[in-house]
Amino acid sequence: MNIFRFLGDASHFAAIIILVLKIWKTRSCAGLSGRSQIAFAIVFTTRYVDLLTSYVSLYNSLAKIIFIFSSYATLYLIYFRFKATYDGNHDTFRLEFLLVPCALLALIVNHRFQVVELLWTFSIYLESVAILPQLFLISKTGEAETITSHYLFSLGSYRGLYILNWIYRYYVQNYYDLIAISAGVLQTLLYCDFFYLYITRVIKGKAFALPA
């Protein structure tokens, strides 16, 4: 565990807490993509089946359980508890356009052709694009609540920090995983446009809105 990875995980936890708090405090999931959250639930479920097969540390196992639990709790809030506020009309990104290519790619490009490994690989590919329905929703409505933009900033920071973690691990531990790195870089790139608008608008106290 190095500082970049710790901060990355912390940022990831923060993102999830911000998301749940936003829904709970405003009693609304308006502006949130249920489809991105479905994708994240699939990501965590397929990646963390290794909870049953390999033990890394108490921290690692607890984090996995929290991520799985919170992703389903979020789905419950969006699709059941606050369903009336869900912006389904704008949340129209077709998830199969992400699921199918990621599944095929996992079957072709993987470290080992073995069930748990393939699920891990699939989850890595899917995570890299899971935020697309959320970004698509924002591009359709042209705006995001400030708290939603904080959520996205935290989530993007998590991936950015993981890249620093991989650079560190490459030099210090001679460890690298090309599948995780390439997917992680793609994922971070998807946030760049958002980061730019976040820094130029939200940090200066303005609402997050796409340029006209």
């Binding site: 990875r5 995980d9 990831h12 290794d50 390999s54 890394v56 690692n60 984090a63 996995k64 991520f67 470290h111 080992r112 891990w120 993981y162 973690n165 001679n174 460890y175 690298y176 995983d177 090309l178 599948i179 995780a180």
Partner: peptide
């Protein structure tokens, strides 16, 4: 080496 045997990250 591409150490992919154990996935110790989240």
């Amino acid at each position: 080496s591409d150490s992919s045997k154990e996935h110790d990250e989240l």
